[in-house]
Write a protein that binds this DNA or RNA. Structure first.
Length: 470
DNA sequence: ACGGATGATTAAAT
DNA sequence: ATTTAATCATCCGT
């Protein structure tokens, strides 16, 4: 682990400091304010000890010396009178007992604290004042996002489902049937991300606490041989945590990134475009072709259409925008469609009227098409188609017997016949039905391009692309 | 795989 | 704010 070695290097650096501190006799003396003779003795002993290698010292001293050690970082209260009795007052001449005696010296706690203080100051001056870290706004942002995305929140379901639903609503997706499948896919991926995130997080946390413990033990042990205050250990732990939290931030950041990518791939409505279902298209087309002279549904009409088609109002707007422009661009291509829907509306109108006049109602086979939007205008195309159809497709009672509506797939010859029939009434439809409407209602809708008719395409149908390039 | 169809997005115009 | 025109990205039949 890279950070571990770096961390240890940092610790080693601190260790080096202690040697320098020990040499600073003057300040020690100044701060202690104790008889100088005493201090001189102690310092000499300290110097002697610091001349030994750490290994030697450890090997020699630790096994036998358990009760009192430097600083008593485990139990600060212990420091006060530790030195009093056990040393027995005799001067330690034996090299082996030098350290032990030093530990038991009555001055030891004071000296220790002074050394710690000095070191503290040095460390602070080196490191500057950036010790207290404010809660990182960056990591807070990431946390918030992960929480909102349902990655770091409660384990299952709730959070992510809510997030997905919210995203779907924001994307304006249809709440209908096919939405759920997509989202289950999305949720599966999200769960995958969440799992990775959590396992990584756990790993990091474990490593962090492990390492922290290790360092703390190390420092505590070292506090027997060099001045390390509890405060310093605390700070070291803080440093470690900072390091690890920066690693954690990286993890969070990459998780956020992954979630964003996932989101854009799965929930961006544009990328995951779904065609409207047949019925919706049908409803929209019916409206469009029955209001061909002014295919601009009002807000209420849009709402109604949206409700009918189980899509949003803005989707209705999109649809009409696309439809208008594409129709206008290549009328010929939409000819058959126009006739088809004209027929359908005519049939509906006919069946409605038949229903009205005759008591029996042969429930229009075409589910949503009978005009719940205002038929006030049901006019132009419907009437034209009606005219074209009348001779062959209406029975005596005026009831529609047309069979193309239910099966949505009109045979080609039927269509052709309709087209040709309608074409026969060209002047009638074009001039007496369409033209007036076009003139008085709409100003910009098809100002010039197609002068006359619905039925005779002005140009070669196949040649023009509705969309220029792709 | 390809090309047309189609819903959505965008900038510009109104 | 809505519409147009162009464009994008995907869907879907072949």
């Amino acid at each position: 682990m890279d950070d571990q070695t770096r961390m240890l290097a940092g610790l080693a650096g601190l260790g080096g400091l202690s040697q320098g501190d020990v040499g600073d006799q003057d300040s020690v003396r100044k701060q202690l304010g104790q008889p100088q003779q005493d201090i001189g003795d102690i310092l000499q002993q300290i110097m002697a000890i610091t001349d030994e290698s750490l290994d030697e010292a450890q090997a020699r001293c630790w096994p036998e010396e358990s009760p009192a050690h430097w600083g008593g970082s485990d139990d600060p209260a212990e420091g006060g009178e530790a030195g009093g009795g056990t040393a027995g007052g005799g001067l330690p001449l034996n090299f082996q007992h030098r350290k032990h005696a030093l530990n038991c010296h009555r001055m030891k706690p004071a000296l220790f604290s002074v050394l710690c203080e000095i070191k503290e100051k040095t460390v602070l001056s080196i490191r500057g004042v950036q010790d207290e870290d404010p809660p990182d706004p960056q990591i807070m942002r990431l946390d918030n996002m992960l929480l909102a995305e349902g990655v770091s929140g409660p384990e299952k379901g709730g959070g992510s489902a809510a997030a997905a639903a919210a995203a779907a609503a924001a994307a304006g997706g249809s709440p209908g049937s096919d939405g759920g499948i997509e989202h289950s896919d999305y949720r599966a991926k999200l769960a995958q991300i969440r799992q990775i995130y959590h396992s990584e997080l756990e790993k990091y946390e474990q490593a962090c606490s492990e390492f922290t413990n290790h360092v703390m033990n190390l420092l505590r042990e070292q506090s027997r041989t060099r001045p390390i205050s509890p405060k310093e250990i605390e700070r070291m732990v803080a440093i470690i945590h900072r390091k690890f939290s920066s690693i954690q931030m990286q993890l969070k950041q990459s998780t956020c990134e992954a979630v964003m990518i996932l989101r854009s791939r799965f929930l961006d409505a544009r990328r995951k475009r779904r065609n409207f279902n047949k019925q919706a298209t049908e409803v929209l087309n019916e409206y469009f072709y029955s209001h061909l002279s002014n295919p601009y549904p009002s807000e209420e009409a849009k709402e109604e259409l949206a409700k009918k088609c189980a899509i949003t109002v803005s989707q209705v707007s999109n649809w009409f925008g696309n439809k208008r422009i594409r129709y206008k661009k290549n009328i010929g291509k939409f000819q058959e469609e126009a006739n088809l829907y004209a027929v359908k509306t005519a049939v509906d109108a006919a069946s409605v009227s038949a229903q009205a006049s005759q008591a029996n109602s042969p429930a229009t086979p075409n589910s949503g098409s009978s005009g719940s939007y205002s038929l006030s205008h049901a006019g132009d195309a419907a009437a034209a188609a009606y005219l074209g159809l009348h001779p062959s497709n209406l029975n005596g009672a005026g009831e529609a017997v047309l069979n193309i509506a239910p099966s949505l797939q009109p045979q080609v010859d039927t269509l052709h016949r309709v087209t040709r029939l309608t074409a026969g009434y060209e002047e009638l439809t074009a001039s007496s039905l369409y033209a007036p409407h076009r003139l008085d209602t709409s100003n910009s809708w098809q100002d010039n391009t197609h002068p006359s008719c619905v039925t005779s395409p002005p140009g070669p149908p196949g040649s023009v692309h509705s969309d220029t390039s792709n």
